[in-house]
C-alpha cells in the first residue's frame, strides 16, 4: 500500500505547485500510508532543483496540448494565457496523455472565466470556432468513421 501512496504523493508534487511548496517547506499534509523512508524521499524530491525542471517539463507538456489544439484561443488570450492555463490546470488535474478532451475542457474554462482585458466578442467567436472543430474531431473519433489519434 505504501508504494501506491508514495506514487500518488510524488505525482501531486509534480502537478500541484501548492502541494510541492507545502511538502518542501515541511508543512503538514496527510501522509498516511507512507513509510519513514518514503516521507524522507518525498521531502528531498520536493526540494530538489531537478523537481523544478520536472515541473517545467510537465507544464510544457500541458501547454503544448493547448497551443496545438486551440492555437487561435491561445493567440487571443496573449499575455493572459499562462494565468488562465494555470487556473485551468489547478482545477483540472491531467488525466490522459491525449490532447482533445483537455483542449475542450480549456475552452469551457475560458467560456466560464471570461478573462478581463481580452476583447470578449473576439474571444467568444474564436472559442466557438475552435470548439466546433474539436467537437467534430471528437465525434469522428467516437464513431470511428474517421478515427484520428491526437498527438501526444
Amino acid at each position: 500500500m505504501s508504494q501506491r501512496a508514495f506514487q500518488a504523493a510524488l505525482a501531486r508534487v509534480v502537478i500541484e505547485p501548492e502541494f510541492r511548496d507545502l511538502v518542501a517547506s515541511g508543512g503538514v499534509f496527510s501522509n498516511e500510508g507512507l513509510t519513514e523512508l518514503e516521507r524522507r524521499r518525498l521531502a528531498e524530491c520536493s526540494q530538489d532543483r531537478g523537481m523544478d525542471v520536472t515541473r517545467m517539463l510537465h507544464k510544457g507538456w500541458r501547454l503544448t496540448k493547448l497551443m496545438a489544439m486551440t492555437p487561435l484561443t491561445c493567440a487571443v488570450l496573449g499575455e493572459h494565457l499562462i494565468d488562465e492555463a494555470s487556473t485551468f490546470w489547478r482545477l483540472n488535474p491531467p488525466t490522459s496523455l491525449y490532447f482533445l478532451d483537455e483542449a475542450l475542457g480549456f475552452l469551457d474554462h475560458i467560456d466560464a472565466s471570461r478573462p478581463e482585458g481580452v476583447p470578449a466578442e473576439k474571444l467568444n467567436a474564436i472559442v466557438a470556432h475552435e470548439r466546433s472543430l474539436l467537437k467534430s474531431r471528437q465525434e469522428a473519433l467516437l464513431t470511428m468513421e474517421h478515427a484520428s489519434a491526437m498527438p501526444v
Partner: peptide, 26 residues
C-alpha cells in the same frame, strides 16, 4: 517508470516517465 497515479480526482497522468525506486518492493 510510471505516469499513472491515484488522485482524489480518480487517476492522474503526469505525462512524464516518473522514476521508480530500486527496491525489492518494486
Amino acid at each position: 517508470s510510471y505516469n499513472l497515479a491515484e488522485h482524489e480526482a480518480g487517476e492522474v497522468n503526469v505525462g512524464l516517465t516518473m522514476p521508480l525506486s530500486y527496491d525489492q518492493e518494486t
